[in-house]
């Protein structure tokens, strides 16, 4: 069932449209059934939609969302359904009729339902209370700041870099001048697959033997990436490398619009150079296995690999203005 797969990066939009779509189908079906004179009682329609939303959130979304978040969605959807069933006095009467009928015990069947629910409700709530009072040891949730504020300057291999003014020395046009517009035109396409624009043009293909300047530096950065970084950040830079499963915090996903796409290049330079151990406290430096790359790479290599990450994901570094 490949077509049903939630696609990485598009998941929130997919979820909202799927939910909205199915609610629309329910509404149409309800309208059609009513017209055909086979309408579902409002009570059961309301309860059914609410249960559907809960099941959708629990079983459709992966990785699973925590219970507390589902509880919020549950309350919001219950409010929505309540507004629908209490839109008019008639609708409200119709909605609560099955409940009232059971409470009044208007027939033998309703009496039986009343007796059963009088016993089951206290037992169920008591049981729920018991399980929540049992000492349980769930994984603790610790919230970590993924992009903490960078320092004003950073010292790498004995040289001080002022992050507000420093520029990537390899982001250059063919006159050798820093030129972000020139290099932005040569990154991969921001479409499914994120492919290079033209494989037969040395201006776009880093592997072309005639590639020069920026394009050649991208290849050199890629070589460093695939000798050092892909183990965690993955062959597609999506944070799903060979060992990503073993580490927590999980490696950053560069293809996500929330990581390098919203950061300045110098911020990335600082993060790469100083690694996990160089983070401030809110970034959990004790838990991150991200190497301080100054221990493994030269300054030039770090600049090249940062540039490769932007090239490969098709994102532009954010600028100061």
């Amino acid at each position: 069932m490949t077509w049903l797969k939630l696609v990485e990066g598009y998941m929130p939009m997919q979820m909202i449209s799927e939910l909205a779509g199915s609610i629309l189908i329910f509404a149409l079906a309800n309208w059609a059934l009513n017209r055909a004179g086979m309408g579902i009682p409002k009570f059961w329609a309301g309860v059914g939609v609410w249960i559907y939303i809960q099941l959708y959130l629990k079983y459709r979304i992966y990785p699973p969302i925590p219970f507390s978040v589902r509880a919020i969605y549950g309350t919001v959807s219950a409010c929505g359904i309540f507004m629908w069933v209490s839109g008019s006095e008639d609708a409200w009467q119709e909605f609560k009729r099955p409940v009232m009928n059971v409470m009044d015990g208007i027939s033998g069947f309703h009496k039986a339902v009343r007796t059963v629910s009088l016993i089951v409700i206290p037992l169920a709530l008591g049981g729920f209370a018991y399980t929540s009072f049992l000492p349980s040891f769930e994984e603790p949730i610790e919230l970590r700041t993924v992009h903490p504020a960078p320092p004003a300057t950073t010292k790498v291999h004995g040289k001080t870099f002022v992050l507000q003014v420093v520029e990537n020395p390899y982001r250059v046009n063919n006159e050798g001048k820093y030129d972000q517009a020139y290099t932005d035109a040569r990154i991969v396409e921001q479409a499914m697959g994120r492919l290079m624009k033209d494989v037969n043009d040395p201006n776009y293909n880093p592997w072309d033997p005639n590639a020069e300047g920026y394009t050649k530096y991208v290849r050199e950065g890629g070589e460093i990436f695939f000798q050092n970084c892909h183990f965690c950040h993955g062959d597609n830079l999506n944070g799903r490398g060979l060992w990503a499963y073993a580490f927590n915090p999980i490696p950053a996903n560069f293809t996500d619009a929330g990581t390098i796409a919203q950061l300045q290049e110098t911020f990335v330079f600082w993060r790469v150079s100083k690694g996990g151990i160089g983070l401030p406290g809110e970034g959990f430096p004790w838990a991150s296995v991200m190497p301080p790359w100054e221990q493994h790479l030269t300054v030039d290599e770090i600049w090249k690999v940062v540039m490769f990450e932007y090239w490969h994901t098709g994102y532009y570094p954010r600028t100061w203005d």
Binding site: G193, M196, V199, N205, G222, F226, H230, D235
Partner: peptide, 21 residues
């Protein structure tokens, strides 16, 4: 075009399994 964007880094230019990775 797909190969030289995604695969070449490990499988190499000639596909000999000798890319930089």
């Amino acid at each position: 075009r797909v190969y030289f964007t995604k695969c070449v880094w490990c499988h190499g230019v000639e596909g000999a399994g000798d890319g930089p990775g």
